[in-house]
Design a protein around this nucleic acid. Structure first.
Length: 277
DNA sequence: AGTGTATCCTGCAGGC
DNA sequence: TGCCTGCAGGATACAC
């Protein structure tokens, strides 16, 4: 669910509310969202101060004292809800899985209906090693059209599968992959290596554009996604193909088609995005 | 190297 | 109302 723009929105809201707080107690409601046994997770976090909250790909990355990192992957339905006082929490939390209780009151609740998310407490060094396996940040200045073209050229995967692979580029999920491909007029099934330099340049531009606009709109809420204030994102109304099967393409009126491959839906305009280049 | 499939889990919409 | 199927912003592991 949450892709780069949603995670970015969550992180921005979270940062001012939890930096400086000290984790006093860790309540584990469902240990299946933890990467390690609950006792290890508690010991890893207990007593530490939150120093910063950032994002890498779709991961929320909280840096804590003692060179410790809490990585949160929100899966499909994960939410991070800062709560001011113990007493009246859980208003938003319908499926709390983990609660970090702060010294002097307040908490950060990890809520996750489907529990596909993952919380991992690890050393800075261990986190850096993992982060190095992720592809470049698509909004970083070092992610150039040329670099994208070079990456695509080495793979026969369908372009959409390529975009979803976090080792190739970090943070793109099914919504923005489909939107970017439509913006670039590239069929989602086109082999990555078949994209010309021009195709790659359009894809680069479309991807960055859609991610930036979605961040401005505070993300896309289809069902579950809420930011750290509990608010919905506004980008759903700006989607051009995702979820619009049978509706007219906004560019040419041709009905949007849905395909399934890689066990996920792909949405495209068959006129704007021809399968053959 | 790539693809198809299954798995984790819950909720919702739609058909009957 | 109930029961069924299919579907969902993700990630991973497996066999072929």
């Amino acid at each position: 669910m949450p892709e780069l723009p949603e995670v970015e929105t969550i992180v921005r809201g979270l940062r001012p509310r939890i930096v400086g707080r000290v984790v006093e107690e860790v309540e584990v409601v469902h240990d299946d969202v933890l990467a390690s046994p609950a006792a290890d997770f508690r010991a890893c976090l207990g007593g530490r101060t939150v120093q910063d909250v950032g994002r890498r790909g779709k991961n929320v990355v909280a840096r804590l004292s003692g060179d410790t990192v809490l990585r949160v992957n929100l899966g499909m339905t994960g939410r991070l809800l800062p709560v001011e006082e113990h007493a009246e929490l859980s208003e938003e939390a319908t499926h709390p899985a983990v609660r970090l209780l702060f010294r002097n009151g307040g908490a950060l609740v990890y809520d996750d209906t489907r529990r596909f998310g993952l919380l991992e407490c690890l050393s800075s060094e261990a986190w850096e090693r993992k982060a190095a396996e992720l592809g470049p940040e698509p909004l970083s200045p070092t992610f150039t059209a040329r670099r994208l073209h070079e990456g695509l050229a080495r793979s026969r995967s369908p372009a959409r599968s390529w975009l979803l692979d976090q080792r190739r580029v970090a943070g793109v999920g099914n919504i923005y992959a489909n939107e970017a491909l439509h913006g670039a007029r590239v069929h989602p099934r086109r082999p990555a290596e078949s994209l010309s330099r021009d195709d790659a340049a359009r894809l680069h531009r479309a991807l960055r554009s859609v991610l930036r606009r979605a961040i401005e709109a505070r993300g896309t809420t289809l069902h579950d996604y809420r930011d750290s204030e509990g608010d919905r994102g506004a980008f759903a109304r700006s989607l051009e193909v995702y979820g619009r099967e049978g509706e007219p393409c906004l560019r040419c009126e041709t009905p949007v088609e849905r395909l399934v491959f890689g066990s996920r839906s792909a949405f495209l305009c068959p006129a704007c995005q021809p399968e053959a280049p």
